[in-house]
Design a binder for these strands. Sequence first.
RNA 1: GGUGUCGUAGCCAAGUGGUAAGGCAGAGCUCUGCAAAAGCUCCAUCGCCGGUUCAAAUCCGGCCGACACCUCCA
Length: 469
Amino acid sequence: MALTLYNTETRKKEQFVPFNRENVTMYVCGPTVYSYAHIGNARAAVVFDLLFRVLQLNYKKITYVRNFTDIDDKINKAASEQNVPISEITRHFANIYQKDMLSLGNLAPTLEPKVTEHIPQIIKIISELIEKGHAYEAEGHVLFNVPSYPEYGSLSHRDRDDQIAGARVETAPFKKDAADFVLWKPSDDSLPGWASPWGRGRPGWHIECTAMSREHLGENFDIHGGGQDLIFPHHENELAQGKCSGNHGKYAKYWVHNGFVKVNGSKMSKSLGNVFLVHDLLEKYPGEVLRYCLLSSHYRQPLDWTDDLTSQGQEVLDKFYRTYLELQQEFDLARHSSLDEAQPTQEIVDALNDDLNMSKVFAVLHRLIAEIRKQEDPEIKKSLGVSFIASARIIGLMNFDPEQWFQKEKATSIKIDELYIENLIQERKTARSEKNFKRADEIRDELKSNHIVLEDKPDGTTEWKIFEQ
RNA sequence: GGUGUCGUAGCCAAGUGGUAAGGCAGAGCUCUGCAAAAGCUCCAUCGCCGGUUCAAAUCCGGCCGACACCUCCA
């Protein structure tokens, strides 16, 4: 089955046909780096990482660009509050972002360009826009003139006339049209700025993505991604700039947008104090659990972040790793190269190609587990097992050695005295061999009251793990 | 006011015309000294009302409800 994607611009699921099969291009709006990434930022990163992986299943070479926005008024504000240069803030949080995204099992994009490294390209595009009559200078600002581009609104499907009625628009007096937006704004001495034909200043919000996508992917590229909130005005404006400057074309061929993360049914916002930071969540859950949760509903649907969701994620991942562990113990998979060469099953690939149908993917993974469990022929079992692991890995899960996975769980939260636990396990073993089940149960209970649960394995050993609450 | 998205079991979530995938939780049984794991079994008629059709969760209309964007935001 060929890859199909839902295109925001046409509002349809379309078959994906790249401009160039030899180099598929994708640009995704990355973070503005002035604080920690929250779980909503993470969703976008995970969704497009998944798409990156799916593209790799279909094509040899993918160029995936995800930018860092490192010049922005929020950054300026943070920098002046802390009395440090903006680069100190942006470098710090860009680093954290990269680490957090890695923890979630995301592959690194091909390129991660920064806005401040593309000022000349930005100035060039703005100059082109002015030359072609799509932009004008006013009081040190340069603005894009929306009426000069009749197709404006084609991406977000908004009719300008209908918008104005109830919208809370504060119009700057120097705008020719209320919808005009800033391409370049002046900086006084207290603000970061760059020399330009219009004086010292800094870029507006949307122009950077036009410049960076053009620099690294060309004037036309295949996929443009981001969160749903970016459709308007960010992507609409970006598209206008892209099509009105340089040569003409489609700009981006497929616009793909992921849905929002909600928290207990309502929007995540600072004022409600319900913003979950990836950084904090990683203290409590393995990155793969968070990844599972983020992938558990279709990427275009809203995702409600709840305790139920994370505990379900933990259960499912444990089940996956339990299967992996059994396979590992039976076949010593790590010793063989079979794992590295293994491919996901065709059914999984088809589900992914169908606009990233993750529910189908998980259904197949669970079915594979059941088949593995029941399979008695070792050769068939091994082959199923290898397919299962390869299939889970293609979506960015099962990157840990299974023993490491369960070991890691032990290490989280709650302070543990391993020696104390091991001693009690020994004592219980002795008690059990003497049929002193009363004492054996006492030990189980005692550990249980300390959040430790014991599991007797078929081979006679006893393992322990921590349970919450 | 404009523009969209959505409403499927306790929870998560597919399915978009032919009589409801999967998972989590739960219940029962098997196995196990106990517990866990594993296996088997059970657990919905798809927000409401009306229409189209031989046939609708799936198409159309109306209503109710939730959410988002139109302002910085993934």
